[in-house]
């Protein structure tokens, strides 16, 4: 169905678009270098994962893909921390972080497009759905870019905070996959905000893409999220002091 294709593209592309927009605001004057550092590793990683997806998914008793994605999400966060902490690593660190997220989104989308169940979708549905998904994701990214530019001019801390939320979101996604694979204990559920703000609603969807909003978070997830948020924010502050 058309709506499934749109949601699939949005789910995979929106977080990537938001992260790229945030990083482009950060490296505004060096965007050409950033693009170069981003494109080459992204293409390489996407090719590797896509070509070896069957083999990867069969590893670790069928949990290979979950493990790989968790690793890539955590790598994305770690690279953002390194980029923020060390000015000399900022450009390639953030480009590699974006490449990690791109390889996850890209391989998921390729899987969706070439999946045997796609026979239910007509090519027109796929083209129209992907155009709608890409259009919405890219539009939000453009608006997010200009909003962040203004925020950065107003208060640099606000930019650092939003970057930290975007980084912590990747850890939240990794923790969800690890919990799903029983590699991490979820702990007691802290609250339930599904009725208040559903993850399926437009705002819930956006917040999940931006900062990893979870309607029913577990204790371990939340602790991990908070620690990572503070850590990345601290790294950003340090970067500013050095400059």
């Amino acid at each position: 169905m058309l709506i499934n294709t749109v949601l699939m593209f949005l789910r995979e592309l929106l977080p990537l678009c938001l992260l790229l927009a945030t990083l482009l605001v950060w490296h505004r004057s060096l965007w050409r270098h950033f693009a170069l550092y981003f494109v080459l590793p992204s293409a390489l990683m996407l090719c590797l994962i896509s070509l070896q997806m069957v083999w990867i998914s069969e590893l670790l008793d069928g949990l290979g893909l979950e493990f790989l994605y968790s690793f890539l999400y955590l790598s994305c966060f770690a690279l953002l921390c390194v980029a923020a902490r060390k000015t000399s690593y900022a450009l390639w660190g953030s480009a590699l972080a974006a490449a990690c997220l791109f390889s996850i989104s890209g391989s998921n989308l390729l899987l969706y497009i070439w999946l045997p169940t796609q026979t239910e979708n007509t090519p027109a549905d796929l083209v129209l759905g992907s155009a709608l998904g890409v259009g919405i994701g890219a539009s939000i990214a453009v608006l997010w870019y200009y909003l962040l530019t203004e925020l950065k001019l107003w208060r640099h801390q606000s930019f650092a905070l939003l970057l930290s939320f975007t980084g912590a979101r990747q850890v939240m996604m990794a923790s969800a996959l690890l919990i799903q694979s029983d590699w991490l204990v979820a702990g007691p559920q802290l609250w339930q905000t599904e009725q208040l703000l559903s993850e399926q609603s437009e705002l819930g969807f956006f917040l999940q893409a931006l900062m990893g909003y979870e309607a029913t978070p577990g204790l371990s997830q939340l602790l991990l999220y908070m620690v990572c948020l503070v850590l990345l924010f601290w790294c950003c502050s340090f970067m500013e002091k050095k400059r």
């Binding site: 539009s139 453009v142 608006l143």
Partner: peptide
């Protein structure tokens, strides 16, 4: 860029 992004976003969301 902003107007194209706005039109695209609102039109696509409205279409959805």
């Amino acid at each position: 860029t902003v107007l194209i992004a706005l039109f695209t976003l609102i039109s696509f969301v409205a279409a959805l």
